[in-house]
Computed example of a mutant assay.
Amino acid sequence: MEQNLSLYRIFFEVAQTGNISRAAKNLYISQPAISKAISKLEDNLHLPLFIRNSRGVQLTEEGAILFEHVRAAFEMLDHGEDELKRMMELGVGHIRIGVSTVLCKYVLLPCLKEFVARYPHVKFTIHCQSTLQTLELLEKQQIDLGLTAEPSHKKNIIFDKVTDIEDGFIATPAYLTNMRLREGALQSDVFKNGTVLMLEKGNVSRTYIEDYFREQHVEPNHLLEVSTMDLIIDFARIGLGAGCVIKNFVREEIKNGTFVEIPLTPPIPKRSIGFVYNSQSSHSKALNMFIKYYRHFYQNA
């Protein structure tokens, strides 16, 4: 088949013009070369494709059937070339991003909103999942980018930091007051006497907090495990307990008094978050555009 591609181009031009001389002129090759190519294709297929006459050539029945398929094939190739040209001119492309629900909502979406407004022809697929799943998909090259906390192991992974985050514990004033009244004390240890809302085991953020607990010899007595940080915030808001959250995303609610931050000594160390990508993957034009854009966006945020 590969050896026949040039022969099919010649066949297509002769069939369209109905004349070997005009086909030779259009293709900038000699008439004998055209005749030789047609004869070779007929020999390969063991079928006559043209009837020669004084006015030129005419497709045989078999030639007409082949012509329809060849025309469809060349139309598809033309369409593919047009698509590539459009991608280059308009920045059309497809970017696949893996990100947790909370980072998607609070970190990715503001940037994505502005990028899509500027480059509406770029298609995005967002995979909302855990950091571990994102890193696994990156390794398999099934996504182009991930937005995660800085991974501890970076084999074949490039980490592009965009900001720092702070973990902490928050609760409503009413929850803390009720806990103190229940315990009959002016001060009460949330981790000893309260309900602590945390992400499920295995989550990267949960592991980070557990490491902090071990270092500070903290052991919560009453845990309520929740699948997403958004749910932790919602549960804390209705007074179900003290939630372990990323403080960056509830600063306004801490400021207006909806939540009270639980003081910790020492505070939980900050973490870096950023985009990760596989160092062994090639980058499309659209992906390079997005990388350049988010670096500028977060630098000026």
Rank of each mutant, 00 (worst) to 15 (best):
P120Y: 11
H121G: 06
K123Q: 15
K123Y: 14
K123D: 13
K123H: 15
T125A: 07
I126S: 02
I126W: 12
H127M: 15
Q129R: 12
S130P: 06
S130A: 04
T131H: 11
L132S: 11
Q133H: 08
L135D: 05
L135V: 11
E139Y: 03
E139N: 06
Q141A: 05
I143M: 12
L145T: 00
L145I: 01
L145D: 00
L145R: 00
G146L: 07
G146S: 05
G146K: 07
G146E: 06
T148M: 10
T148Y: 10
A149K: 09
E150T: 10
H153I: 15
K154C: 13
K154W: 10
K155I: 15
K155D: 15
N156C: 09
I157Y: 10
I157D: 03
I157P: 09
I158H: 07
I158M: 09
F159K: 02
D160L: 08
K161A: 06
K161H: 08
K161G: 03
E166G: 02
E166V: 02
D167G: 03
F169L: 05
I170T: 03
A171F: 14
T172K: 07
P173Y: 05
A174H: 13
A174I: 05
Y175S: 04
Y175M: 09
L176R: 04
L181G: 01
L181C: 01
L181H: 03
R182T: 14
R182M: 12
E183G: 01
G184Y: 06
A185W: 10
A185V: 12
L186C: 09
S188E: 07
S188H: 03
K192D: 13
N193D: 15
T195D: 04
V196N: 05
V196G: 08
V196A: 04
M198H: 03
M198S: 00
L199N: 04
K201A: 13
K201Q: 14
G202F: 12
S205R: 11
R206C: 06
T207D: 15
T207S: 13
T207K: 12
I209G: 02
I209D: 01
D211V: 00
Y212M: 03
F213D: 01
F213Q: 02
R214A: 07
R214H: 14
E215Q: 12
V218Y: 13
E219F: 15
P220N: 07
N221I: 04
N221Q: 08
L223M: 12
L223W: 13
V226Y: 03
S227P: 14
S227G: 05
T228E: 13
T228W: 14
M229V: 06
D230Q: 07
I232D: 11
D234F: 09
D234E: 15
F235E: 09
A236L: 04
I238T: 05
G239C: 08
G239L: 11
L240Q: 13
G241T: 10
A242R: 00
A242D: 00
A242G: 02
K247H: 11
K247F: 14
F249K: 01
V250K: 07
R251M: 09
R251F: 05
E252H: 12
E252F: 13
E252S: 10
E253A: 02
K255M: 13
G257E: 10
